[in-house]
């Protein structure tokens, strides 16, 4: 009981169209997902129209004329609604720009203040930081003992 070739390609087109239309009375479910009576009726209507020879665009336009634009599962690509499609690539480009600039900036050498200058400045506020550095160096020396196998972070 295999489906005839033409029937199956019509059905394939219908299924694709089901996924592009929203059931108007359900919260955001496509015709493919919804179990509502209206969704079933719409699925039948679109199959009948496809069998009659209408194109996907004509059928979509028909449903939009009856239910409004919210019956489309994605915003149409014209007018104000085109921004829905333009913003993501723009954001990605902005992100890539930021990334490139960040990589450039992170590659610049850190402006380390030479030790002589530090001592000469006699800055009392630096003391806690210098103590911290001393403590770290002492701490690392203890941890860095050669042991069996590398530390888990080394590959």
């Amino acid at each position: 009981m295999a489906l005839a070739q033409e029937e199956s390609s019509l059905e394939a087109r219908a299924q694709a169209l089901d996924r592009q239309l929203i059931c108007p009375v359900c919260p955001g479910e496509t015709l493919n997902q919804s179990q509502a009576t209206l969704a079933k009726q719409m699925r039948q209507i679109l199959r009948d129209r496809l069998a009659d020879g209408q194109t996907e665009q004509e059928i979509t336009d028909y449903f939009v004329s009856v239910y409004g634009e919210l019956v489309l599962a994605a915003p149409p690509k014209h007018g104000f609604l085109l921004t829905a499609w333009l913003v993501p690539p723009a954001a990605l480009l902005a992100g890539i720009t930021v990334l490139v600039l960040t990589i450039r900036r992170l590659r610049k050498p850190l402006a380390l203040v030479p030790a002589a200058e530090l001592e000469a400045s006699n800055d009392v506020e630096l003391e806690p930081y210098l103590d911290l550095v001393d403590k770290e160096m002492r701490g690392t020396a203890v941890k860095d003992q050669p042991g069996r196998g590398a530390a888990p972070w080394r590959s």
Binding site: R19, Q20, I22, G28, T30, G68, E69, L70, V71, L72, A73, A74, P75, F80, L81, A84, W85
Partner: peptide
């Protein structure tokens, strides 16, 4: 956003 700015009611679902 679309509703607030342009009055169009749209859905954004799987195909998007």
């Amino acid at each position: 956003l679309s509703e607030a700015v342009s009055g169009h009611t749209v859905t954004v679902a799987e195909p998007f």
